[in-house]
Design a binder for these strands. Structure first.
Lengths: 185, 185
DNA sequence: TACGTCATGTAACCGGTTACATGATTCA
DNA sequence: TGAATCATGTAACCGGTTACATGACGTA
C-alpha cells in the first residue's frame, strides 16, 4: 500500500505561488524549498502532464517576446481542492533522514580520534554554510516583494532550518570537545 | 557518476558489532540505527551475498540447538580495510531530508490557521515520542554491557538525535504561538 | 495445532536521479 | 560564433521497499 506521492502535492502547491512552468517550478524549488524538498526535471515534467490528465490543472501554450515559448499550467478547482485536502490530511510517520556522518561516527572506534574529529569539523563547516544560506533566503523573502500571506509561512520553514542546524552545530562542537578530553586522560 | 552505496558500509560496519547474520543486522538497525539509517531485508541479504563475492566477508553455515540454522558472516581483512577507508573518506554533501510538515506549512495560506496549528501539534507529538525513544535506547546502551569502545560513539549519535529533536519541538511550540498571536490582532 | 520467534530469501514495483537530446533567444 | 539563459522532455538506471514465500523450532 503506497501512501506518499507528496511530490505531486509539492508541484500542485507551487502552481499557486506564481510559478506556472516546469522551469519556474524547478527554480523555485532550488531557491526556496531546497532544505526540505527537492525535485528534478525528470519528475517535474511528467508530473505536470499527469496533473492535466487527472483534471487537476490545465495547460496553455504561451509565446513570449525575447524568450522561447513556454507551457503555462494553472490549477483547476479540482486541483485546488486536492491541495486543500492534502494539507489537512494527517502527516505520516516522520521520515528517517539518512545521515552519513552519524553512520560513520557509529563505527568510529575503527579509526583514530583525530580522523573522527576531522569528519566532525568538516560536517560543522557544511552546516555553517547551510545556515548562511538560510539567512540569505530569509533576507530575500523579507526584502523582495512576495505575497505577504505566503511569506510568513516561508519564514517559518526557514526558522526550522536555522534552529535545527544551529543545534547540530553545537552538537558537533561539544562532541569534538568530548573526544579531545579523552586524549588528555 | 554514482557515489554513495553507504548501505554497503553500514552492513560492513555492523558485522564488527557482534552481528553476524542478516537477521541480527536487521534487529540492530531497527533498535539502534533507526534514527539515521534503515535497511530492509530486501537490501540486507543481497548485500551480504555481494560482500562475499567481493571478498570483503566470508560465510559459514552454523547449526544451532533449539533454533534454525543460520549463515554467519565475518569480515575479511580486505573488508576491514574497506571499512576504514570509507570512514576516512570525506562526507558528501548533506542530504536533503524530505519534511512533509514543512512542505505543508509552506503552502499553509490555503488552509485555516487552526488546521495548521493542528498539524504542528501532531508533529510535535511525534517528535516527543521520538525523543523518548532516544532516551530509552540511551538507557539500554549505558546499562547493558556493550563494547565500551563502541558505546561512547553510539551515545554521541543519540545525543545528536535528542538535541535536534528538542530544537524542532521548541520551534513547533514557538510557531504555534506566533500563529495564535495573529488571531488576536 | 496454532502462534511466536528465528531465519533466509526474492520478484515486482516505485520514487527519483542522471545523463542525454533538443532548440529558441540574447548578448558579448 | 559561442556562451548563457530560458525552456521542454525522456530513457536508463538505481537504491530501496513491499509483499510474498518458505521453513525450523519451541511453547502454550
Amino acid at each position: 500500500m503506497k501512501q506518499t506521492n507528496n511530490t505531486k502535492f509539492a508541484i500542485l502547491g507551487l502552481l499557486t505561488t506564481g510559478c506556472h512552468t516546469g522551469y519556474a517550478i524547478k527554480q523555485m524549488i532550488d531557491q526556496s524549498l531546497n532544505h526540505f524538498w527537492k525535485i528534478s526535471y525528470g519528475q517535474i515534467y511528467p508530473t505536470l502532464k499527469q496533473l492535466v490528465a487527472d483534471g487537476l490543472a490545465t495547460v496553455q501554450d504561451t509565446s513570449q517576446e525575447g524568450k522561447p515559448d513556454k507551457k503555462e499550467y494553472f490549477l483547476t478547482e479540482k486541483g485546488e481542492m486536492e491541495l486543500r485536502t492534502w494539507l489537512q490530511a494527517p502527516i505520516n510517520a516522520i521520515a528517517t533522514e539518512k545521515n552519513e556522518v552519524l553512520l560513520k561516527l557509529f563505527f568510529s572506534r575503527h579509526q583514530s580520534n583525530q580522523s573522527t574529529i576531522i569528519q566532525l569539523e568538516q560536517y560543522r563547516q557544511k552546516l555553517h554554510e547551510h545556515y548562511h544560506t538560510y539567512d540569505a533566503i530569509e533576507k530575500m523573502i523579507t526584502t523582495e516583494l512576495f505575497n505577504k500571506e505566503d511569506a510568513a509561512f516561508w519564514l517559518f520553514t526557514l526558522d526550522y532550518g536555522k534552529r535545527t542546524t544551529a543545534a547540530a552545530m553545537e552538537w558537533c562542537a561539544d562532541t569534538v570537545q568530548q573526544i579531545q578530553n579523552w586524549e588528555e586522560e
